[in-house]
Design a protein around this nucleic acid. Structure first.
Lengths: 213, 213
DNA sequence: TGGTGTGAACAACTTCACAGCG
DNA sequence: CGCTGTGAAGTTGTTCACACCA
């Protein structure tokens, strides 16, 4: 396929395909059709073929897709054929849960630095061996640890300030769990990216559907 | 405005507007224009006006929107002018973090029941006073506590089974944090709704953008 | 034969531009 | 006058339908 702008939703789906293919692989499925994968992911089969077509031709006509090969290609497309170094700010309940989340590690996301502003927590050692540092030392420790993706798990008030500090520390991507959207400052480097994860939005959607049906 | 199908994205944004308006209110802003609210939420002003137009006319031409009034209306639309009773399965790191999350409580989401399958955890009391029950007792305790929304914070393997049990317990909405999408079974009641929250997808998006830029 | 790859039709959502009104 | 409310235009994303090929 020719060059085209890739829909953001396509990337989201590729990530889902990858997770689903890992399960298929674990069950020793060798070949999968777009129809079967579509059913597992609850999307339209044509959608899957189109999503993949943005990046190449990975299937065999009349047969389907070779599972290990397709998984490999999708992970390569997403940049998951390597590990990623993560730094996190806010070692409260949520922060601890994220650090302990083994799915992240399985996908190659490795926590390399943790920060908080609570003096009681500074210098404490986490189960994974990481030592909590004060946010004032974010820049130096992030640079030293080669942090590439920053996670914000602080109260909303701090989120933007932490984001600015991550930017100064050469961190080019942020996953924000605070319930306040991060604004990308004008001086952010090109290619800087933020994903805002707001649980409350999802609960609100459920409340809406329960209310209006 | 006439009857029209309301985009799912509109509901997502209404939830964001609500959060933003709460902050404006806390800062004693009385009036807000679609332009200003748009800037705070990083959306197009016309988008805001259109989103609101699905539900009525809440502004004053030449002036803007009265903040407390608009907030009230949006919360009413979303069904947040009341409290919602929540049940959660999986009291691990993530589950505990969700239960302790004060944003939920602030929005009117109240945890009424907690379940796990780890015998060590059964009958233990949580900081908020809730006692952890075995998932075999999900149905009776959910009914007794009037649980309306179920949260799944278990490993992926259990997610679908738990969802099925929630359905049997008359729970009509599920927020699923397991990295496996919940399939809505054919025998689910009409109006049943699922939201799948998958952190890994969001990290994968960041990895993709860092890789291809 | 059967499932992929893809142009074309379709559907959904967003933005524009301006009428309408306080 | 200024900002909302909204039809129309524009843009983006999804699904169809079938050519193509192992």
């Amino acid at each position: 396929m020719k060059f085209a702008k890739i829909p953001s939703a396509t990337i989201t789906r590729l990530s889902m395909y990858s997770r689903t293919l890992e399960r298929s692989l674990a069950q020793n499925e060798k070949i999968i059709s777009s129809e079967r994968l579509a059913k597992l992911c609850e999307v339209n089969p044509a959608q899957i073929r189109k999503d993949l077509a943005y990046f190449g031709e990975f299937g065999v006509r009349g047969v389907g897709y070779h599972v290990p090969e397709l998984l490999f290609e999708i992970k390569r497309i997403l940049g998951l054929n390597r590990t990623w170094d993560i730094g996190i700010v806010g070692v409260g309940n949520l922060g601890l849960a994220l650090i302990a989340n083994e799915n992240f590690l399985k996908q190659g996301y490795i926590f390399r630095a943790a920060f908080d502003n609570n003096p009681q927590k500074i210098d404490r050692k986490l189960p994974n061996g990481l030592v909590i540092h004060h946010i004032n030392e974010l820049r130096s420790h992030c640079k030293e640890a080669g942090v590439e993706i920053g996670i914000i798990a602080t109260p909303g008030i701090w989120a933007q300030e932490i984001a600015n500090r991550f930017i100064k520390a050469d961190v080019h991507a942020i996953l924000n769990f605070a319930p306040v959207p991060i604004h990308v400052p004008p001086d952010a480097p090109p290619g800087f990216w933020v994903e805002n994860v707001d649980f409350t939005v999802r609960l609100d959607k459920l409340a809406y559907h329960l209310t209006s049906s």
